[in-house]
């Protein structure tokens, strides 16, 4: 699966506060938030019961459009797309967050309540929902709730919520192809492990103990069928 922005995009209006208007195309500012749509069909060794559960999860709608837009905007702030390896929206984060929150019951309330807290805070501070204030105002709020060492009882729920959204965004991103690329992950491929590369050992000032190394597998002989003598010594 190759997810990048050229593929199907999902997009929602950054609707004005006039509630419920989100679906009314072309209204108000007309600003949209769009993201790569994630697949809804998966096949990876599931049992019948698991397939059934996933079908139900995909069919369930839990978030309102307003909530989804807010999630999208937050994910985008946390991991923006102005980067060679793409950002949260390129990696379909809103779809992922929607799915995982439905899947993990204990996330439902914190995310819903967190969004409501954020809106209430934004209304108090700047006169509109989080997605309907302007960008500098949004970032001003994020600056207040993004750091865990801030000890302000008023901000505490916001800090918790922002941490949760940061966790979900990063986990959702680093489990996509772009994320693995960004990380530089090299594994999950067939290979023959033959120890830590020499230059890495050198950099860490470490060495294999020679006696230990003597006991380890000689990878050039791995395909030769094992035989032993009666003293338990490998002879092949």
């Amino acid at each position: 699966m190759n997810m990048n922005r050229r593929e199907t995009l999902k997009s929602l209006l950054l609707a004005p506060l006039a509630a419920g208007a989100a679906a009314t195309a072309g209204c108000a500012s007309g600003a949209r938030v769009s993201w790569t749509e994630l697949p809804r069909e998966y096949s990876y060794g599931r049992t019948e019961a698991e397939q059934q559960r996933d079908r139900e999860l995909f069919a369930e709608s839990w978030f309102s459009e307003h909530e989804l837009v807010t999630i999208a905007v937050l994910c985008d702030i946390i991991l923006p797309s102005d980067h060679a390896n793409g950002g949260a929206l390129d990696a379909g984060l809103p779809d992922f967050v929607e799915f995982i929150v439905k899947d993990r019951e204990n996330l439902k309330l914190p995310v819903r309540g967190g969004i409501a807290w954020l809106d209430s805070y934004a209304v108090n501070e700047f006169g509109a929902d989080f997605v309907n204030i302007d960008e500098p105002q949004r970032l001003a709020i994020c600056d207040r709730i993004a750091w865990t060492d801030v000890e302000d009882p008023v901000l505490r729920p916001g800090i918790r919520f922002f941490s949760l959204m940061r966790d979900l965004t990063l986990t959702g991103y680093y489990t996509t192809e772009q994320g693995l690329l960004d990380l530089g992950y090299q594994g999950n491929v067939a290979n023959v492990w033959d120890g830590v590369p020499a230059e890495v050992l050198a950099r860490h000032g470490l060495q294999y103990e020679p006696e230990w190394l003597d006991k380890c597998v000689d990878q050039s002989r791995r395909d030769i069928i094992a035989t032993w003598d009666d003293e338990m010594n490998l002879t092949s």
Binding site: M1, L38, Y42, E50, R53, R104, T175, L180
Partner: peptide, 17 residues
């Protein structure tokens, strides 16, 4: 040999797994 995105929950645990 499946990548994390082959699961909609990216390998998260469930009651069934």
């Amino acid at each position: 040999f499946r990548y994390p995105w082959e699961s909609p929950r990216r390998g998260a645990s469930t009651r069934l797994r």
